[in-house]
Structure formats: structure tokens, C-alpha cells
Design a protein around this nucleic acid. Sequence first.
DNA 1: GTCGTTCTGTGCGCTAACGGACATATGAGA
DNA 2: TCTCATATGTCCGTTAGCGCACAGAACGAC
Lengths: 245, 245
Amino acid sequence: MGNNPAASGIPTPTRNDLLAALPAVDYQRLLPDLELVPLPLGLAVYESGGTLGYVYFPTDCIVSLLYVMKDGASAEIAVVGHEGLVGVALFMGGESTPSRAVVQSAGYAYRLESKILKREFEHGGPLQHLLLRYTQALITQMAQTAVCNRHHSVEQQLCRWLLLSIDRLPANELNMTQELIANMLGVRREGVTEAAGHLQTAGLIHYSRGHIRVLDRPGLEERVCECYEVVKRESDRLLPERVAS
Amino acid sequence: MGNNPAASGIPTPTRNDLLAALPAVDYQRLLPDLELVPLPLGLAVYESGGTLGYVYFPTDCIVSLLYVMKDGASAEIAVVGHEGLVGVALFMGGESTPSRAVVQSAGYAYRLESKILKREFEHGGPLQHLLLRYTQALITQMAQTAVCNRHHSVEQQLCRWLLLSIDRLPANELNMTQELIANMLGVRREGVTEAAGHLQTAGLIHYSRGHIRVLDRPGLEERVCECYEVVKRESDRLLPERVAS
DNA sequence: GTCGTTCTGTGCGCTAACGGACATATGAGA
DNA sequence: TCTCATATGTCCGTTAGCGCACAGAACGAC
């Protein structure tokens, strides 16, 4: 891995798996245009229907893709972390999407001008393949979100959400109020309180005032519905392995 | 349009919009390998996790993408008709997906060997762009399905489902029992009976023993949730217009 | 016609989640 | 240390949808 600049010496919080998986030559070509930017909690990286000026490759942050309805209710469609990028609509050809992208956990991301990514994508080759495979993983996540919304309890969905989140974070902790989690899941805050209460009583998590720590990951995996496993397995199958940083 | 073979003289039930939108030269190259095949009701065009030997371009049939859970419960993820193709995972690079594809309304589709489509896709150009734009429309549909599953009533979802279906069929009619619709929506059959009863009482549809006729499309559009409109608008924006056959 | 299968209608009781109101706890800042 | 905004806990009644059981209705086969 020593010959891959993205895999070793870059002075960043962590790295982005897609960038790290690029062949050195492709990565070098992008490097001058990659800009590491901080993404503060709550920032709308991308608004519904807006133009995509940049795409973002998260390193240690999490970005939620969600749809906000006319009446203000919302639902998370998918979540993106160091394994992916925000802005697939760019190279898919649509330039925009009906959903929003909101920073759910603050951190850093590599920002790249849309026109540059588009140009690189058009070359075909490893970059294109990588981005398309990632998009398929994202599709699986969306599909499974639909299934989960239909059939599973708030508690199961919370488990899924927690696992998906900590998979994308460096530690077993995240800063997120129950109110915000409720917005993501599209359920009531009280519902999250109740579900989180169960998980805490069972010793699986500890939380207080917007800080959640996962104490027993295997325990969560026992309670979660099959949706998590499906998404995880497809991600592992489709995406480059995350090499040690 | 006279110089586009797909737009005029092909002796088929109808045509597929993606194929019809190809430049003549690209279409001609594919033509020898396109095979018009009948897709009977209930056929599993594609099984979860299986290999994609062929992709299908529906003409007058509808194919549902759905996920079946371990306990047998199911939920539809998206629906594909003459506007698209079944098998996007092929060119996205994954070769398989966790979902099934089942024929919901019998008819015909053009079948194409996977390796041929893959080869053509790798060339880039109009075919690639077309397929990727379609995939984005599909992504929107999945995302909106997730939202709809979370927030809307069975009746609203039934309206959405009916509209999406008849948009893909030549007439305002479809053959489908309430039992099967319930499987698609992932709800109880009784729930569909009740919702369909309302719609019939309101004079919007007529149904009997597996045959549904839409009597008042504008009426359905009044009752449907915003999800239908979002999906429709994105499809119109992203996909080639359906030229008159 | 008659039978039997397959759809559709309807009536339970039950539960998860909703909507709203309000009580309590906690931690940051004065 | 006290204060206050914010986060969490808990109570209500209400409702949509579930699971089940069974009754009617329509159609095809004979």
C-alpha cells in the first residue's frame, strides 16, 4: 500500500475509502483539486433540487440523505460516511435529486468540484467502476430502508441506525439528540426515548444529553432486524476493504 | 424519428423507451442480440443474490423489484415498465442484488445477454448515459418508496401504486388481485380491500376478482401523496420522452 | 345447473405508534 | 452556586394497521 498516497501519509483526520482505493496515478491527478473541508453538524451539504457544485468524500463525518415532505416531516433515505461520497446524482447524469444531504455527525470531508469529477468519471476506468459500485451499495441501503420502514419496530430501526452510524465513525460513540434521531428515522421523539430506554436498560448503550455510547455491539446485532446485515454484506461485497490507517 | 428503427417499424406489442431513445447506430448494433420474450405473470425474472444472465427491457409488462424477508413478508422497492430495464446491478458492477424481480403484469420484454450489455456499457457514450439516468430515476423511486412506507396511509400508497402501474400500461386497467397488491405494498390483504373499497365508492376505480379499472385518474391524483408526483417528475426530467408509437 | 375454488367483505380484539401535555433531569454559563 | 435552556421521561387518549376468523360472492369446471 506504500505507493498509494491516499493510504498512508495524508495528514487528515482519517481517510476516505473510495479515494484510498484509487490507483496512485488516478489519485495523483485528483489530488490538486481535493480540498479538505470541515463539515459542521447540521450543515445542509446539499438542498433538494439544487445544483451540485461539489461532491464530498467524507473522512470522519456522517452525512444523511433525507427527504423532507411538504408538511415538514422527514425520513432518512441513506447514510454516507468514509466508505462513500455525497453527490452520486452528478455522475448519474441528473445533476440534482429531490433529497437533502445533512451533516449528522461533524467532521471533515474532501471536497471536489463537480466538473472535475464528472470529467474524470467520463474517462471510465477504475474511478468510474468504483463510483458505480458504491452507488449500487447505496441503492441497496435505500431499498432496505424502504423495507425496514414498512415492517420493523422503532427499536429495531434504532438498532440498525446506531450500527450503521458507528460503522462509519472512529469510536463507538456519537453525538446526537433523540430529537434528531427521531427526525432521521421519521418517528416521534418519544418513540426514540422509549426504544433507547430499553437498549440502555439492557446494557447495550449508554446515553445522556445528546451523547450516545455503544457498550455492547454484539447485543445490538442480536436485536437488529435483518436489514442491517443485508446492507452491511452488500457494502462489504461491493466496496474496497478499508485498509488500516 | 423515421431514422430510428426502434421508434417505428418494429413489430412488437409496444416498445421500450430506452431502446427507442438510442441513436440508430447503437440500436442497430444491439438489434441482432435483442430477443423479444413473453414474461408470464408471476415469473421471477431474477432471484435474490442470483447471477444476471440477461437484462430485460419491458415493453408492455410490469416487473416489480421486491425484497422478501426471512419470515416471508415482502415489500416492493420499485416498479419497472417500458421506461426502463430490469438488471441495473449488471452495469453498476455488482452483478447481483439482494432483491427479487417478479412479473406483476404479463407481457413482453426484450431480453439481452448480460455480457453484451456490459460490453456496450463500457464503451461509454449515449447508451451509458441513458442507462445511468434511468438508474437515477430508479433511485428516486426507491427513496420515495422508503418515505411513503414511513409516513403515508395504505390508501395513499394504493393510489401511488395504481398510478405508477397504469403509467406503465397501455390501458387504464390491470389484472391483479388484492392479495397480490398487498404483497407488493407489504400490508394486509384486508387493508387493501378497505382502501380499494373507499376508492370504488368514490367512483375512482372499479374492480372485481382481480381486475382493476381506473375510472377517474385526476381523482386518484388528488388523493395520492406527494410521493407519486416526486417520482413522476424525476422520471420525466431524467428519461427520454416516450414518442408516439 | 352444482360444486368447489378463489376472490372479496366484515367483524372482532390487540398492539405499536401517534399527538399532545407536562414533569424531571442535566450541564453549560453567569 | 444558581439559573435556564435543553434533553429526557412519562402520562394520557386516539388511531391505523395487524392477526385471525369467517361469511358472502363470483367464476370456472363438470
